[in-house]
Every structure is written in structure tokens, then in C-alpha cells.
Design a protein around this nucleic acid. Sequence first.
DNA 1: CCTACCGATCGGTAGG
DNA 2: CCTACCGATCGGTAGG
Lengths: 196, 196
Amino acid sequence: MQAIIDTKAQIRSVAQNLFRERGFTATSMRDLADSLDIKAASLYYHVKSKEDILQEICFRIADDFFKAIEQIDFNTKNADELLQEAISTHVKVIIDNLDAAAVFFHEWRHLSQPHLTKFITLRKKYERFFTKILKQGIATKTFGNIDVKFTVLTIFSTINWVYEYYKPSGKMTPNEISRNLSNMILHGISTKKKIV
Amino acid sequence: MQAIIDTKAQIRSVAQNLFRERGFTATSMRDLADSLDIKAASLYYHVKSKEDILQEICFRIADDFFKAIEQIDFNTKNADELLQEAISTHVKVIIDNLDAAAVFFHEWRHLSQPHLTKFITLRKKYERFFTKILKQGIATKTFGNIDVKFTVLTIFSTINWVYEYYKPSGKMTPNEISRNLSNMILHGISTKKKIV
DNA sequence: CCTACCGATCGGTAGG
DNA sequence: CCTACCGATCGGTAGG
């Protein structure tokens, strides 16, 4: 049994990398098999289909995102602290799974139904954690009078792109990246006061 | 001649849409032909190859981005005004070419050499406009002591995602979106003062 | 995990 | 812009 599990994990690992580099559609089962030094037909002993692999990648990391954010205690902190913590855990999941994150953000649309709908539903559910933080922050005047939906989308655009430029060999640590992103989202880059 | 030009523009228009929806690799020449009510072989009278279409889409909108940003007068304005204007023209190009922008941001990696290198070089050149604005703003203390490279990347992540959520039928106008994005990037969402 | 193979589809060409 | 077609490659199966 152990061998099967390992092989499946290996397939996923190689697939994450190739799906990221070339895209899901442009990666063939033969490409995958070549990287694993087996024949394409042998892959089907471990996975049901090519899309089966994509599903596993997408929903595994979705699960990581939920597990991380659900550990945040939403009752004992201010909205700005909550937001910083949410950003930090989100960024950590991405950085710990760079290939999977890239696939998650780019290739999910190749999921077939009903998985596609399930995926979109999960994403909306996840967004609600951030919506909640923003609404709380507006209510307590911690945040300005912002458009919640627009701001949630903008926060995600800002923090999701991390997988694109983060390099483990780079000079910025994951914590520094999280801090800088939180800082930009909370305070911006200007030294001047906001004109409202 | 006019007919040929129109047909080529039609091919590009349909291709932008399909490449966006399904991705470059997952869109076949037969898909394109079907949408145009012609046969796949007939496409080759107008275009050299499938990638030829991708190249046109990517480099045309790249040109739009440059034309727009080159019209900004970099000498008579403060860094914060410059940044607002750069963001605004950038967002306008995206909103005026939603399909092409989506292809530009997602499918460029399917370009072959030497076009891929040319594309990346152009993108770096374009980023330099923003680098210049940030450096000027830091020098004049308009911006805080930020990491320039990181901030340029973060600004692009924040503003590029517009193509994903902008809907012409939505309640926010392009100008409002630009203003909100500039506001977030310059001042953030917090009402508190920045703690340095 | 392999060999052998299938039907479908791909990008593209020849020739009109 | 069409018909007719090509070699290559695709995801996947049968049977071991």
C-alpha cells in the first residue's frame, strides 16, 4: 500500500510542476510518464484520468487554505490584526505549495462539472472570511468607508500573485512578504494623509 | 483588401474570446473556424499558424500599453499624481480590451522563441515606467521607504486583475475603479496612521 | 507496471 | 474559401 501512496504523491508532485510550467492542456500523460520514467498507460493504475490529477491538486490546496484560515480566532482580535493574520496564513499556504498554488489559480477552469461548480463554491466560501473581517473593520471604524466586494477582490489580487515572484532563494522571507503586503493593503505607500 | 483585413480582425476577435475562455492550447483551429462559420483550412489563408494569432493578440495590446503610458508627461507632476495617472491609463487599456488583456496576462507563455523573449523584454521595459515613478517618489519623500522591485510587482498584481472582475454592466465605472485602486495603493484601507 | 493498440482530434498542407 | 488529406499525438483501454 505504501508504494501506491508514494507513487500517487509522486505523480501529483510531477504533475503540479508540469501543469504549472506548460498548463494542464499542454501537458500530456506521456509527458507526465516520461518525467516519472514509466509508460503512459501505467499512470492509469494510480489515477482514473488526467483530470483526476487536476482535481486532486486543486482540492488538496483548497483544503490547506481552509484549514489555515479556520485556525484564526475571530473573536479576540481587531479587524486590522485579523486581516494581517489572514493574509499571513494565506501567503504561507501559497509559499509552502508554490506549484500547486500556481495550478490552483490558473488551471482550475479546466475542471469539469460538477467539480468546477464545487470549486467556485469553495472559493466563494473562503472569500467570506475576508468579507467578514472587512465588515467588522468598517463597523469599528478600523477601516475607511470601502466597497467590501471590490476590496476583497483587490486584496486577493494583491496577495495571490505571490506564487509568481516568490523565490526561496530571494532576499525576502515569507514573513517579510506577508508583512509588506499587509502594510501596503492597510496603509499604502504614500507618506501623505489620505484625502477623503 | 478591405475584406482580408476585416476577416483577420474577425479571426483575432473570436480568438481573443476563445483563448480567454478555454486557453490557447485547449482552443483548436476548428473551434475558431466553427465560430466564424468557415472551414479550419480556410483560416490559413489569413494567418500563418495558430501561434501567429496569439502573437498578434499579445503584441497588439502590448503596443496599446506603451502608447498609453508614453503619453504621460513625467516632468511636470509629483510621483503620486504620476502613479495615479499610470494606474489609470493601464486600467483603461485593460478595460478597453478585456479579452485581449486576459490572453495577454495568461497565455503569453505559449509564445515560442524568439517571441517569448521579446515579450518578456517588453514587459520589463514597461515595468520601468513604474520603477521610475516609485524611485522619484521615494527621493521626494512622497512615498515611504519601500522596496521598489517588490512594490512594482505588487502594484501590477493589484491592477492587472481588473480584467477578471470588471463587468461593463457593473455599478463601478472604469474611472471609479482606477480611483479606488490608486487610493488603495497610495493609502490603504486603514483609518489608522502607519506604524513605522 | 508493461506491450499493443484504438478512435478521435490535432495543426497544417496540397491543390484548386 | 473549399475538399481532401496527412502524419503526429492525444487520452484512454485490453489484457497480461
